[in-house]
């Protein structure tokens, strides 16, 4: 497939936004059970939600560049019964709204107690909103992943690993951003976030590597023989029916060499996983400087962009069998 930058930005940016929100709510849940020092809601959770929201808005804006007719985008919420894309279109704004409410509730310290747990732990409104956001964040990861995983012809994507990767890779970048944010706003949370970020990054490395191994072993199901229905072992295309290009030659081929693809693979493995994990480890040993964490996040984000580019480029569409030769 031809990697479109609008989609690369969409999926990586909202992944960070979701991950950051999950990180914030995780910290709040830990604090609820006195496992972490309580943070001042006003400064920490509200500003954190704002940053998450900015990333989500960035992703939403990027997505519009992918559409031929963005003015009709509202129509895309109608087919949620069958289309994962439609489901994503519904869940994304719902999640953004929840993050907004979560931030607002913290900002104005609007925390009426909704319920009390047996141990005398008070569940306030922000916890309820946060829990809803938590569910929506995961739902959004699943929607994004399923948009690709549900296409059975694109066998590189048609796997549960695709969904797992979207969750882990988005989560990793979000927790890394949370580490940066904590280094600036709440130093006593740096180790907590850095630890989780490192763990999720390494889990992401494992599942992404697993999908690389899986894809390397795939044998194409469709062949030129099944494409045109002629059972001769040797068939070559002499003409694809036109001398220039067409949508089918532009949309489904990445146009780069095998060597280029391979180097992007090593680059993203290094930038998205290895380098940030090492930098995050410095925070665990006590350094955790803001600058260093910022570098970790930027490097990981660039790595994830490379990862997404590779994700699209690697998928080999069966329609390509029909577009092999100009003549």
């Amino acid at each position: 497939m031809h990697p479109a930058f609008s989609v690369i930005f969409l999926t990586t940016l909202i992944g960070v936004g979701q991950g950051l929100f999950l990180a914030l709510f995780t910290a709040q849940s830990y604090a609820l059970f006195d496992l972490l020092p309580k943070q001042d809601g006003h400064a920490f959770y509200a500003h954190g939600s704002l940053i998450a929201l900015l990333f989500l808005i960035g992703g939403l804006v990027a997505s519009f560049f992918h559409l031929g007719r963005p003015e009709r985008a509202w129509r895309s919420a109608t087919q949620w019964r069958t289309s994962w894309l439609s489901r994503e279109v519904i869940v994304l704004p719902a999640f953004m709204g929840t993050v907004f409410l979560y931030g607002i509730a913290h900002l104005f310290d609007f925390k009426p107690v909704v319920a009390t747990l047996p141990g005398g732990i008070a569940i306030d409104l922000t916890v309820v909103i946060g829990a809803v956001g938590w569910v929506l964040a995961f739902a959004l990861y699943v929607c994004t992943g399923m948009i690709y995983a549900c296409l059975r012809f694109l066998r590189e994507w048609h796997s549960s690993l695709t969904v797992i990767n979207y969750i882990l890779l988005g989560g990793a970048s979000g927790f890394t951003l949370a580490t940066v944010f904590a280094a600036a706003a709440a130093p006593d949370l740096v180790r907590f976030f850095a630890g989780w970020a490192a763990i999720i990054t390494l889990l992401g490395l494992v599942s992404r590597a697993a999908s690389l191994v899986r894809n390397a072993r795939l044998k194409p199901k469709s062949t030129l023989q099944s494409a045109i229905g002629i059972k001769h072992p040797k068939i070559v295309q002499k003409a694809q029916g036109f001398m220039g290009s067409s949508f089918n030659t532009r949309e489904f081929f990445h146009g780069k060499s095998v060597g280029f693809l391979r180097s992007i693979k090593w680059i993203f493995l290094l930038l998205a996983f290895v380098v940030p994990a090492l930098l995050l480890a410095t925070a665990l040993t006590g350094v955790g400087a803001l600058g260093l964490m910022l570098i970790a996040f930027v490097v990981q984000y660039l790595g994830l962009m490379a990862e997404r580019w590779f994700f699209f480029a690697q998928a080999n569409h069966p329609q390509n069998l029909y577009y092999q030769a100009i003549g």
Binding site: R69, P70, L85, F153, F247, N248, Q319
Partner: peptide, 22 residues
Amino acid sequence: DKCIGCKYCSWACPYGVREFDE
């Protein structure tokens, strides 16, 4: 009149017969 030009359907067709009108 309803299509938003997201091209998702063309990804889902294995035969490469949908073409986006530029």
